[in-house]
Design a protein around this nucleic acid. Structure first.
Lengths: 344, 344
DNA sequence: CGTTAGCACTCAACGAGACAGAGTGCTAAC
DNA sequence: GTTAGCACTCTGTCTCGTTGAGTGCTAACG
C-alpha cells in the first residue's frame, strides 16, 4: 500500500496545484511546473495508475484530474507541511488579541473574525464549555419584586445569568444570605454536579423555600448544561463566494443553509473538543451536507485543560497546511488570553 | 398630480402582479387577469402614459413593464391594504411568544425567527435600547481578587454585565457597600446620565478610590451607550435565495455582504425607533448598498415608550401589506412580553 | 524495460446563426 | 375613446461547428 516516491511526488504536485487553482490539472502542467525531469507522457502513465488506485478522478474524459477525498487524506497524513505564520502576522494577532478585549463574548467573536481573515474560510469558535468549569460564586441580584437574576461565576470567568422568579415576601437581605450560602456549598463543584442534594443539611431553609430552590437548580442546570448553540460563533460565511466551485448558486445556497443549522455545527465542535487537531475531509464528515467540505478544528486549552474548539470549514480543496498553522497560533493565544481571566 | 382612477387601477394591477411573479408584466396579462372590461391595446396606451409619468419602466423594448420605486411609493402611500393575520396564525404567534422565553436574548432571537418565518424575508430585531431605560440597581459581583462583574439592572430588565478591574485590597464587603451606595445614587436616572458628578458628596470614598470610580463610570458608559450592534439580531438572510431576482450570484453576494456590516443596519434601525412604521423603497435608502432593496420597520413599545425596532429587508418587490401586518402583530406581542418583565 | 514522441480521439466551452415567443407602438377602423 | 391588426424588436433557447486542452494508445528509442 506504500506509494513509490515518484507517484507520491506527482500526487502531491497535483493536489497542490489543484488547491491553488481549482482547475483540473493535466499532465503537461505537472511536467512543466513541478517535475521538469520527466515528459508529459510519463506523467500521464503515472496519473492513470493513480486514478486506478483511487487517488485521482477525471471530471470527464479529456479533462485534467482532480484529487479524491482519499488523496487529500493521504496528503494530510503524510505530506502535510504545517505553515507557521510569519513574524509580523504573529505580532498582528497578538496585538489584536490583547487589545480591547474585556468581555468574553467579544473575545470569542473577535477570535472568529481573525481566523476568517487569516484563512479566508468560514470560521467557527466554540466558547469555553461551561460543563468543564467549576463554580466559584453564585449571586442573586434582585430585579423587581417578583424576579431575580442569578449570576454564576465560574473559574473561567465565564459568567451566565438567568432570570428566575422569586417567592413572595423574600427580601433583599434574604437573597444575599441565600447567595452566600449557595456559594459556600457549590464553590469548587463542577457545574454538572449542581443538584438539590448539595443543599442537604439546610433543612430549615429548604422547608420554607423548597419550591424556589428546585426552580433555581433547574434554571441553572437548563441554561448552562443544555447544548447551548449560542456558544457557537461563526464569521466569514460569505467567504464561500470567493471560491470558483461555489459560483454555482445552488451550491452556495446549500452551503449557507447548512451553516444555518447551528445545532449540528455546535455538536460537531463540542465532540471534537478533546482532540488536539482534527481534520475531516469530504465524505469523512458524518453530516451529509458537509460531504464536499472539509472541516479542520483545534482545541484551545485553559490552564492545561481543553475548554473549547476553534475551526474552519471550507472546500475540500483547502490549504490544510496554512489552516492548521493559523488554528494552532490562534488556539494558543486564545487559551492564554482566557487564562488571564483566571487566578489560582 | 392626481392619477385618474383607471390609471390607478392599472398601476395597482401591474404592481401586484409583479410583486407576485417577479416577471415584467405585459398589457395582455393585465387585460385578461385584472381588467376584463378592457382590451390589451387600451391597457397598452395607459401603460405608455404611466411610463412617461415615471411609474413604470421597460427593462428592454418588447418586454413587459415593471414598477419603479416611485410607483411603489405611490402604492404604499395610497393603495396599500394592510393584511391582518388569520386567527390561527395569530394564535401561533402568541403560543410561540409566551412559551419558553426566559432570557431577553432568547426573546429577541425568537422574534427575529418568527418574523422571517412569517414573511420569508430577512428580519431584523433591535433589542430594547438601553439609553431609553432608567437604572434600577447596580451590583458588583467579585470574580477573583483582581476583577469584578458589574451587573446593571434597568427598568426594562435588560441586564448588561461588564468586567472591571478592582483595586488591590478591596474586599467583598466593601464591594457590597459600594454597590448599595451606587444603587441609591443612580436609581431612577437614565443610563445616559451616568457620570462621576453623581458621586458628589461621597468625598471620602472617592478620594480613596477615585481611579476605580472613573474606571467604573467609563466601563458602564462604554459598554452600554456605545452603538452596540450586538443588540441587532438578524434571521433568514438566506431567504434571499428564494427570489428569482437574486438568482444571480453577484447580486446574492452583494446582498449578503451588505448584511454583514451590522453597524449600518444597527444605526438605521436605531434611527427609526421613534417612527411607528417606516417604509423606505430602493433609492430612498440612504445607504447605496440598499438601493434595490426595501426596508420596512416598526417600533415596539414597552409601557407606552418606544424601546426598539423590528423590521424586514427584501427586494423592492415586497409584499408590503403582509409585512406591515406581520410587523404590527409581532411588535405588539413583543412589547407586551417585555412589559411583563417590568412592574411599576 | 522505462521513457518518450506522435497521433487519433473525446469532450467542454464558446460563439454564430436561426427561431419562437412575448410584448410593444402605431395606424386605421369601429 | 376603444379596439383590431400588423410590423417590429428584443430575449431566450436551441443547434451546430470550431477550438483547445487533455487523454490513451502505439511504436520507437536508449
Amino acid at each position: 500500500m506504500e506509494l513509490p516516491n515518484r507517484k507520491m511526488d506527482i500526487l502531491k504536485a497535483v493536489i497542490e496545484d489543484y488547491i491553488a487553482t481549482a482547475v483540473p490539472v493535466g499532465s503537461r502542467t505537472i511536467a512543466r511546473r513541478y517535475m521538469s525531469g520527466l515528459s508529459a507522457a510519463t506523467i500521464r502513465n503515472e496519473m492513470a495508475d493513480l486514478e486506478e488506485m483511487g487517488y485521482l478522478i477525471q471530471p470527464h474524459t479529456s479533462a485534467g484530474r482532480i484529487p479524491t477525498d482519499k488523496a487529500y487524506r493521504l496528503y494530510v497524513d503524510r505530506l502535510l507541511e504545517i505553515k507557521p505564520l510569519g513574524e509580523e502576522q504573529n505580532n498582528a494577532v497578538r496585538e489584536h488579541f490583547f487589545r480591547h478585549m474585556d468581555e468574553m463574548e467579544q473575545v470569542i467573536r473577535k477570535t472568529a473574525q481573525i481566523i476568517s481573515d487569516l484563512t479566508q474560510y468560514t470560521s467557527l469558535v466554540l466558547a469555553p464549555q461551561m460543563r468543564r468549569t467549576t463554580l466559584r460564586r453564585i449571586q442573586l441580584v434582585p430585579i423587581n419584586r417578583e424576579m431575580a437574576l442569578v449570576v454564576i461565576v465560574t473559574d473561567a470567568t465565564v459568567v451566565k445569568d438567568v432570570v428566575i422568579r422569586i417567592p413572595e415576601g423574600m427580601d433583599n437581605d434574604r437573597l444575599d444570605t441565600i447567595s452566600r450560602m449557595m456559594t459556600v456549598r457549590f464553590a469548587g463543584h463542577s457545574i454538572a454536579d449542581v443538584d438539590i442534594s448539595l443543599m442537604e443539611g439546610l433543612e430549615r431553609d429548604i422547608q420554607q423555600y423548597r419550591r424556589f430552590f428546585t426552580d433555581l437548580m433547574n434554571a441553572m442546570g437548563d441554561s448552562i448544561l443544555q447544548p447551548d448553540w449560542q456558544d457557537l460563533v461563526m464569521e466569514g460565511a460569505i467567504n464561500i463566494f470567493n471560491f470558483p466551485e461555489y459560483q454555482d448558486i445552488k451550491r452556495a445556497r446549500s452551503f449557507l443553509t447548512m451553516l444555518e443549522t447551528r445545532e449540528k455545527l455546535y455538536q460537531m465542535l463540542a465532540r471534537r473538543t478533546k482532540l488536539e487537531t482534527a481534520i475531516t475531509i469530504g465524505d469523512e464528515n458524518e453530516d451529509s451536507d458537509l460531504k464536499d467540505c472539509s472541516v479542520v478544528t483545534a482545541t484551545y486549552r485553559v490552564t492545561g485543560r481543553p475548554m473549547g474548539s476553534i475551526g474552519v470549514i471550507g472546500p475540500t480543496r483547502m490549504e490544510y497546511g496554512h489552516v492548521v498553522g493559523v488554528l494552532d497560533l490562534i488556539g494558543r493565544n486564545l487559551g492564554e488570553l482566557i487564562s488571564l481571566y483566571i487566578d489560582e
